[in-house]
Design a protein around this nucleic acid. Sequence first.
DNA 1: CGTCTATGTTGACATACGTCGAATCAGAGA
DNA 2: TCTCTGATTCGACGTATGTCAACATAGACG
Lengths: 122, 122
Amino acid sequence: MNALPLLEPEVPEAVAPCCPPLTERPFTADEAETAARMFKALGDPVRLRLFTSVASHEGGEACVCDISDVGVSQPTVSHHLKKLKDAGLLTSERRGTWVYYRVEPSVLAAMGKLLTIAPVAA
Amino acid sequence: MNALPLLEPEVPEAVAPCCPPLTERPFTADEAETAARMFKALGDPVRLRLFTSVASHEGGEACVCDISDVGVSQPTVSHHLKKLKDAGLLTSERRGTWVYYRVEPSVLAAMGKLLTIAPVAA
DNA sequence: CGTCTATGTTGACATACGTCGAATCAGAGA
DNA sequence: TCTCTGATTCGACGTATGTCAACATAGACG
């Protein structure tokens, strides 16, 4: 059975239109909630290695099989990739036998904006 | 008793000379460990609000009393500030009655470098 | 000294998280 | 259809985390 299109993968775009640079002004509770979701997703060594592997892979995408050598079991890799996906940082697509992950394009821009160096407030 | 100068506050500089841009190449285990520490520290809404409050405050520093209105108890604020400090993101200094926190300068530069947009690898 | 205010520390608690092995699902191909 | 391989999901486990109330510490000021 598969007639329940209920559980959406949460927020597909969790970062994109989010927040001002970290140094511009205090974040509101909502902004903090949103941005923290991204930072949290990248706040694990394994996930960071997976993310950088995908982000730096030729073509901007990588097969799970190409990046799963990070010292943890394969289910754990899958678990982390799912978290990155739920956080809106990666997208995945199955092509035949393999599943490919790629970096959500808007994400890099949003991250760059977040960490824009502002002239250390007056 | 206070004759045990043992427990150092971990790594004062946890981010500064750390890693290449996220999109340049897969992080090594060590790089991931280091960078993840920073992301993790910012991966909590309360800490993110505290951090942005300090970072955007005039003079680049803020008294605890100025930023502790984030919806949690005072001990919790103190706890989070300590975490940001342990992660190397903030420094603190007591001046008379109040304690002032400021953003570790090298941190913003390191973060900026981390999120430099690289031309999505070939 | 004593006391008041501002912060930090401790102990306890519920929840979240990272991890694995086992089971399951998805295509490819015989 | 059966089976093989790649990937995800499930169930369980120990540990880390966020939170608070209670207590402790640090200066300031009488």
